[in-house]
Design a protein around this nucleic acid. Structure first.
Lengths: 118, 118
DNA sequence: CATATCGTGTAGTATTTACTACACGATATG
DNA sequence: CATATCGTGTAGTAAATACTACACGATATG
């Protein structure tokens, strides 16, 4: 179920380690502040993905988009949740509306908003 | 901290009970399938808000928007989270972009998207 | 070849989440 | 005025979450 997360994490780390050898399990674990044995289990899917903070630390260390790694762990960051929580009707409706839309339509909206076309 | 949630819930129930007297704490608790003493504590802010499922059941019973009641409990429904989790980059970027926008601008976008203007 | 680093196995634990069960005195109802 | 319903107090608990600590044999390094 979290195979996605664990496999992706292990692959990402191994790829980085192939380049610079600064990405042994122990070194990454140390930088993200968790026990090597814990990270080992997480990478093999024996343990559930860690907390949001640890996932973010791992993502930054491995140069992965935090939102993406969190999503693979089945999570949405507290930051994004808080945006919704402030205007639940508005964003609830919007998300349900955009759910079925293709990426490009949503991207267009993001672009329009960013360029101030409204 | 969850004063918002508890007060809102109690008020909503008392208002409904004033009309029809089918909204005693015990009756609402029974319909939402939780112990009266538990709901009592929740309404007084002694206990944290219950699980998503119970909050939704309460919202439906009391005719409150589930997203809104969940938000007051500091939660985002698993349904909405799953929409984000399927396309985390896209919706992450979008939410951060829309965060600072006024309601009316967002509503306009939702309307445009709904009417197929892209 | 000593030692440093590697990934992993076992065995826990503290905290949070999400509740139930039961009993009580107060109030309302028939 | 008996009894039904009310809200609430006390005392738990099962399961999930999020980890740590330590030890081990294998492999790499100087």
């Amino acid at each position: 179920m979290t195979r996605n997360f664990s496999d992706f994490l292990r692959n990402a780390r191994l790829n980085k380690n192939a380049e610079s050898k600064d990405f042994s399990l122990r070194k990454v674990a140390a930088r993200a502040e968790l026990e090597p044995s814990y990270l080992s289990k997480i990478e093999r899917g024996t343990e559930a993905p860690p907390s949001e903070d640890k996932i973010k630390a791992l993502a930054i260390d491995l140069e992965i988009e935090p939102d993406v790694l969190l999503a693979m762990a089945g999570k949405v960051s507290k930051e994004l949740q808080d945006i919704i929580i402030k205007r639940p009707m508005l964003f609830g409706e919007m998300l349900r509306e955009l759910k079925q839309m293709p990426d490009r339509a949503i991207l267009k909206i993001v672009r329009e908003v960013r360029d101030g076309e409204w």
